Simulated assay, not measured.
Amino acid sequence: MTVQIAHLYGTACLAIVFFQIALIAGAPLGRYTQGGTHDGALPMSGRIIAAVSIPVVLFQGLAILSAAGFPGLGWPTWTGWVAFAVQVVSTVLNWITPSKPERAVWGPVMLVMAAMALVVLTA
């Protein structure tokens, strides 16, 4: 079961990466990210933040997959805990954002992802 949960976590991370790519490409989803201060497409500074978040999210996914024993990774266990810490911070930030659409969408998603990461790390 732990491996399946890790796979779900990794899949969610990939979905977030695709969301970030859409933001970089100019998708009008600014209300759903970075505090919701932009109704349409993000300005260049917001797109840069989206680009920087991609390797962070990929790290998180790979770290949790490694913690579940995914073949070929073999990362130290502490990387999974770092990924979990980043996930918890993301969860809190998405629940306290002034953007109602961001809270409604990303708050629950981040909370479920944090729970999945914790399950994998404590199994």
Rank of each mutant, 00 (worst) to 15 (best):
N94C: 10
I96G: 08
I5Q: 05
P98S: 08
A104M: 14
M1A: 14
V17Y: 00
S90M: 07
M110A: 12
I21W: 10
C13W: 05
I5D: 01
G26Q: 14
A104L: 14
W81S: 00
V112A: 11
W75M: 13
L29D: 04
T97G: 02
Q60R: 12
G46N: 07
P76H: 05
I24K: 03
I49K: 14
G61Q: 00
V119D: 11
W81E: 02
G74P: 01
E102M: 07
A123C: 07
W95G: 01
R31Y: 09
W78L: 15
G10C: 00
P101T: 10
I24G: 03
A6P: 01
T79P: 04
L111T: 15
W75N: 03
K100D: 14
F18W: 12
F19Q: 01
A67C: 08
Q4K: 12
D39V: 12
P28S: 09
D39E: 15
K100S: 13
V82H: 01
L29M: 13
Y9G: 00
V120N: 04
V17R: 03
L42N: 06
I16Q: 14
T2F: 11
F70Q: 07
A6F: 02
L93K: 08
G80R: 02
P108T: 13
T97H: 07
F18S: 09
I49T: 13
A123N: 12
V57G: 01
S99A: 11
S90W: 10
I21P: 07
P108D: 06
S53N: 13
M110I: 02
T79E: 07
A50Q: 00
G72F: 02
A25K: 13
G35W: 04
L65Y: 00
L73A: 05
L42R: 05
I49N: 10
K100P: 05
W75E: 01
V57M: 03
N94L: 06
G26W: 11
F59N: 02
M1N: 10
L14M: 13
G74F: 10
T79F: 05
I96F: 11
A22H: 04
G35R: 03
D39A: 15
A12W: 04
A25M: 15
A117L: 04
T2A: 12
P43W: 09
T11R: 06
V86R: 02
K100A: 15
T122F: 08
S45H: 10
V86Y: 09
V56L: 15
A67K: 08
A51L: 14
Q20P: 00
P55H: 12
Q20Y: 10
Q60H: 06
M44N: 11
T2L: 11
